[in-house]
Amino acid sequence: MATVLDSVRAFFAPATTYTIDAETSADVVARETLLDRAMGPDRRLKSSEKIRRSRLPAEGLALVARDGDGHVVGTVRLWNIEAGIAADGQPIDALLLGPLAVDSAHEGKGIGAALMKAAIAEAQKRDHGAILLVGDAAYYERFGFFADKTRHLVMPGPSDRARFLALELKAGWLDGAAGMIVASGRKLA
């Protein structure tokens, strides 16, 4: 049975192809190099990065875009978090998306959008309820991310409220969610 990742393939010009695939251990150096170039030297100081520290991405939710030669030209990962607590006092499981990055030589080819669509589809397939992120609202709104569902949630450390966005994969998942975002999920060995 084909998965979402198997079926996501984009063609924008005869000579320009890429595929979206699951990240492998062989992609680590290329991914980190890409993130360093795209995000700059201070990328590890961001609030989102602090949540991800010492954790593994959510199961099956670390994706890369590969060019026709198999080189990593884009990356996105999603991480297990608790998105505050519900009215009944129970923690709300969700995902934190990021970072999303595309090699500057491949920008404008739809790779970032393809990575976003594949990540959202895979999260839905894996029965997650919501995805949160800190990012450019003008970019992420086209994928359904808005600030209204995060108004009672708080990122640890400094962050821009207008850039703290959420997408519910299940209607009402974040209704009543309030409190601090904290890491959950698998820890690094």
Results as ranks from 00 to 15, higher is better:
115 L>W: 01
58 A>R: 09
155 M>R: 10
18 Y>V: 15
99 P>D: 04
38 A>C: 12
87 A>S: 12
136 D>V: 05
159 S>P: 06
179 G>I: 07
118 A>R: 13
70 G>W: 01
18 Y>T: 11
36 D>M: 05
45 L>R: 11
179 G>H: 00
28 V>F: 13
33 T>A: 15
86 A>V: 00
3 T>L: 11
57 P>L: 03
173 W>M: 04
88 D>R: 10
137 A>S: 12
153 L>S: 10
146 F>D: 13
18 Y>D: 10
128 H>E: 11
30 A>W: 01
162 A>R: 15
57 P>A: 00
63 L>M: 01
167 L>A: 05
126 R>S: 13
136 D>T: 06
43 R>S: 09
72 V>D: 01
133 L>P: 02
151 R>M: 08
24 T>P: 00
139 Y>V: 04
30 A>L: 12
137 A>W: 04
49 E>D: 14
72 V>F: 00
156 P>I: 08
49 E>I: 08
164 F>S: 02
8 V>T: 11
3 T>E: 10
154 V>R: 13
49 E>P: 04
7 S>I: 13
178 A>P: 03
4 V>L: 15
115 L>K: 06
163 R>A: 13
104 S>I: 03
13 A>G: 15
133 L>S: 02
141 E>F: 03
35 L>V: 10
119 A>R: 09
152 H>V: 07
70 G>Q: 05
183 A>M: 11
120 I>T: 05
177 A>L: 11
103 D>W: 00
80 N>C: 01
16 T>Y: 05
82 E>G: 07
148 D>W: 09
41 P>I: 08
33 T>G: 03
183 A>L: 13
63 L>T: 02
176 G>S: 08
66 R>D: 04
160 D>V: 14
30 A>D: 15
141 E>D: 07
106 H>T: 06
84 G>S: 00
88 D>Y: 05
78 L>I: 11
35 L>K: 13
117 K>A: 10
176 G>E: 03
173 W>F: 03
60 G>H: 14
23 E>G: 06
143 F>N: 09
82 E>S: 07
80 N>K: 05
33 T>W: 06
16 T>P: 02
101 A>P: 02
164 F>T: 03
181 I>P: 01
153 L>G: 04
116 M>Y: 00
150 T>A: 01
161 R>T: 08
166 A>H: 10
19 T>Y: 06
98 G>C: 10
56 L>Y: 02
102 V>P: 00
129 G>Y: 04
89 G>K: 02
92 I>A: 02
